[in-house]
């Protein structure tokens, strides 16, 4: 099954949940936030949210910035 994580296509085996995807990606679960098809998925719902073909997932964290330092890299697309 193919999904898009932060704009990148990824092949996943089976039909994992969002929580399983985050574990697979070895991301620190603290202080990140996740959007599935442009809607925020609350942390408590990660394990009950099953992924589907062509889902678009955005996973964000925080970086240094003040007033627009990183103007060329929009955070979400």
């Amino acid at each position: 099954m193919k999904v898009f994580v932060n704009g990148e296509g990824r092949e996943l085996s089976g039909t994992p949940s969002l929580a399983e995807l985050i574990t697979q990606l070895e991301l620190p679960a603290a202080r990140i936030a996740v959007e599935l098809n442009r809607e925020v998925v609350r942390r408590d719902d990660w394990s009950s949210t099953m992924l589907n073909e062509d889902d678009r997932i955005e996973i964000v964290h925080f970086v240094g910035g003040g007033v627009d330092v990183y103007s060329n890299s929009s955070c979400v697309e």
């Binding site: 990606l25 991301l27 620190p28 990140i32 996973i59 970086v63 890299s73």
Partner: peptide
């Protein structure tokens, strides 16, 4: 602080 996509190619420590 700014919000950005998490890099997927490396484990990033939290800023």
């Amino acid at each position: 602080v700014a919000v950005r996509r998490v890099p997927l190619d490396r484990s990033s420590e939290s800023f």
